[in-house]
Design a protein around this nucleic acid. Structure first.
Lengths: 87, 87
DNA sequence: TGCCATTATCCTCTAAAGAGGATAGATTGA
DNA sequence: TCAATCTATCCTCTTTAGAGGATAATGGCA
């Protein structure tokens, strides 16, 4: 999932949540936040905090990857921990 | 860059910025925000807004990808726009 | 058509983001 | 070592996220 907007992010998280058969309530509990906060995030992600994003990512067992826009993922299975030459 | 925390995100953005030879000032201008906001983001990302994140991603020409944690990127160059079966 | 589950809203309060605007501190290079 | 650049802070003000806590709307299903 390539994400370039808050809306796209919210949609992706919502879809992941549903695919995992979770409700806003259960995810909220896993994330240590309120159901209403999950709802707000899915509805108006722009106004949510980064902190909330990572709580949700953790609850959904997801992680982020940063890529240059329009770049083909440099795959390689060779997972470079190395902190350079990435872009 | 696999990102699983606000700190990691801030570090990655800062590194991308430096690699692009940009200052907080120039990125702030590109992003339509203040240099002090860029500084705050790099220093305490948890408290920043998702909105600010996407302003910065845009200014840095970066995009996000969501992946299941610990999953090898399903590369394939076959870029599936299709909005399903992603996880 | 009712019920139950799920999501959206709302109240109050506290903490704080980010804008405008500006300076203190730190970094780096000549 | 001095000056130019870059980053961290700070002031004020307005807006709002999210907590605690709870109810209104919706959605689905039998």
């Amino acid at each position: 999932m390539k994400i370039t907007s808050a809306r796209g992010l919210a949609d992706a998280l919502q879809q992941a949540r549903k695919q995992q058969g979770q409700t806003q309530q259960t995810i909220g509990e896993l994330a240590g936040t309120k159901q209403s906060t999950v709802s707000a995030f899915e509805t108006s992600p722009e106004h949510a905090r980064i902190e909330t994003l990572f709580k949700l990512l953790s609850a959904l067992n997801l992680e982020l990857v940063l890529e240059l826009r329009g770049q083909a993922p440099e795959n390689g299975s060779g997972n470079h921990q190395a902190w350079d030459q990435e872009w």
